[in-house]
């Protein structure tokens, strides 16, 4: 398996909980049934061990090995409670998979009953087999979704034959729509990630667009964000139709803000938005005419740090 696959599995075992993967319709037996009956249960269900459960709670575990011991020794009693392993280790259904795996690993257990936290009732069972099956299922699902999408998109530039290739993305921002503030920046970030753009690049682009998007929301009737992705750079154009900025130099001063009180109460209007944009871009140009609108152009080069 490739490195990406291994990384994904490591992530999954910290991500998935035991309850996500456990076998739910668990076959269990009571401590009072006979070893003869146990033999039948194991044979019929083709399993090598079962949890022993009383009133829904785990009281032990018994496996083929115990059955063989009983068959060869035939001493003591002949019910399950005489031969089962007591003090059985269980896992909670909300524990992460890594917990179950390290128990298998350290203690050499073959199966772990899964109990819920409140009343400690047995709700399922995990074995190594169950875990492997679930992991395979998960990585397959993943490959079929995001990974394949990302793979295809990241090869876009190579697959297209042209003297120069530019991907253009255009988004509308509604004025006053504070609730959805950041949606455009978020969508652009997601798209850049899929295109396999480097993290430091897509982060800078996303942050710059976020600040510009919020300015459209607070200070204008709305506007348009256009993103042009080329192999060597990402250019962003943000335009609106007013009111315009009377003095761009003033607006660029750290802390300068005309934000009204309600905007400031939300934590906006610190007067550092344009500075954040400047810091994130390799080039920033603002053209603004009062009464006509503002045009902001940002360039982020692909090869800079």
């Amino acid at each position: 398996m490739n490195n990406a696959g291994i990384g994904k599995i490591q992530e999954l075992i910290y991500d998935l909980s035991v309850g996500d993967v456990m076998k739910k319709d668990v076959i269990s037996i009571s401590p009072d049934i006979s070893m003869y009956k146990l033999k039948e249960v194991l044979r019929k269900n083709r399993i090598s061990g079962v949890p022993v459960v009383k009133n829904g709670c785990s009281v032990g575990i018994i496996s083929i090995e115990d059955l063989i011991n009983w068959l060869t020794k035939k001493s003591a009693g002949s019910s399950v409670k005489d031969w089962m392993t007591k003090n059985v280790v269980t896992v909670y259904e909300d524990e992460k998979l890594i917990q179950a795996i390290s128990l298998f690993d350290q203690k050499g257990y073959g199966r772990l009953p899964v109990v819920e936290r409140k009343e400690k009732k047995v709700v399922g069972i995990v074995t190594k087999g169950v875990i492997i099956e679930s992991l395979l299922r998960e990585i397959e699902i993943d490959y079929h979704e995001e990974e394949i999408r990302r793979y295809r998109m990241s090869h876009f530039f190579e697959d297209v034959t042209a003297d120069s290739v530019t991907i253009g993305l255009i988004y509308q921002v509604k004025g006053g729509d504070v609730m959805n503030g950041g949606t455009v920046a978020g969508n652009i970030k997601k798209t850049l990630k899929r295109l396999d753009i480097k993290p430091d690049i897509y982060r800078r682009v996303a942050i710059a667009i976020y600040e510009a998007e919020m300015n459209l929301i607070f200070y204008t009737d709305g506007g348009e964000v256009s993103v042009y992705i080329k192999p060597e750079s990402i250019c962003v154009n943000v335009r609106d139709h007013g009111p315009g900025i009377p003095d761009v130099k003033d607006a660029l001063r750290l802390g300068f803000s005309t934000a009204p009180n309600w905007v400031r109460e939300l934590g906006f209007g610190a007067g550092i938005g344009l500075n954040n944009i400047q810091r994130c871009s390799d080039k920033m140009i603002i053209n603004s005419t009062v009464g006509r609108g503002t045009i902001l152009d940002i360039t982020v080069n692909m090869d800079t740090l």
């Binding site: 504070v178 609730m179 503030g181 950041g182 978020g186 982060r203 976020y210 939300l266 934590g267 906006f268």
Partner: peptide, 14 residues
């Protein structure tokens, strides 16, 4: 701050 924009900021900044 408890309004939805904090999530946009947190997500943007990871």
């Amino acid at each position: 701050q408890g309004h939805p924009n904090i999530v946009a900021v947190a997500s943007m900044k990871e």
